[in-house]
């Protein structure tokens, strides 16, 4: 059995670090893990996708359309963009945070504000206000770790010391903030 997770967000949101922490945890649990990322333009506000597959033996590193068991979206419209990758019956975990793409800023396109409601209806998306939680904790950047909290809760995994792993993998100055965000994400 292989589980395929697609994580998607906007450059700078920390999707790659989140995927790294998740992969490290899964590897420590004894799973074969493959992670694939496309990040040539990650700092420049483009869409960033990382793909993670785990199981007893994983061959291919990437996920095709209709193949993701779970989509984790760090931004509302990115959840919508990733929808074709979702397996029928798969689930979506998403933040309702909105980041305007350039095409919206220039007025060339409209932002689909109702995407979270649409995805709740279409695919039972679970919406977590990770961005808002992170801001309320005084650390907007910990949005990703807050989502990680919700994500590990959603996966059928044995118990694991995620907090220890996070503490080891995030920048030392941000450990407290990130652990607080992780706990709030788990409760969400």
């Amino acid at each position: 059995m292989i589980t395929s997770i697609l994580l998607t967000g906007v450059g700078g949101q920390g999707t790659i670090l989140t995927t790294k922490i998740l992969s490290a945890g899964l590897a420590q649990m004894g799973y074969d893990v493959k992670m694939s990322e496309i990040h040539g333009m990650s700092q420049r506000g483009g869409t960033v996708n990382t793909q993670l597959r785990y199981g007893d033996r994983v061959y291919a590193p990437n996920i095709g359309e209709g193949e993701a068991d779970l989509i984790v979206a760090f931004e509302k419209t990115e959840a919508l963009r990733a929808l074709p990758y979702l397996k029928k019956g798969g689930s979506i975990l998403m933040d309702r945070k909105e980041i305007m793409p350039m095409s919206v800023l220039t007025g060339a396109a409209e932002y689909p504000h109702g995407a979270d409601k649409e995805l709740e209806k279409l695919a039972g998306a679970k919406v977590v206000a990770a961005g808002e939680i992170a801001e309320s904790l005084g650390s907007p950047k910990s949005q990703n770790i807050c989502l990680l909290g919700a994500l590990v809760k959603a996966l059928p995994l044995p118990s694991f010391d995620w907090e220890g792993l996070i503490a080891a993998m995030v920048p030392p100055k941000t450990v407290e903030m990130n652990l607080a965000a992780f706990r709030r994400g788990r409760e969400a």
């Binding site: 483009g46 359309e65 419209t77 963009r81 029928k88 396109a109 689909p112 995805l119 279409l122």
Partner: peptide, 20 residues
């Protein structure tokens, strides 16, 4: 066959990389 996917009537506006 082709994998079954979920369709939405909404479209996501393009988000190409841009100058920071």
């Amino acid at each position: 066959g082709a994998p079954e996917t979920v369709q939405s009537s909404l479209t996501a506006p393009a988000r190409p990389p841009a100058l920071c």
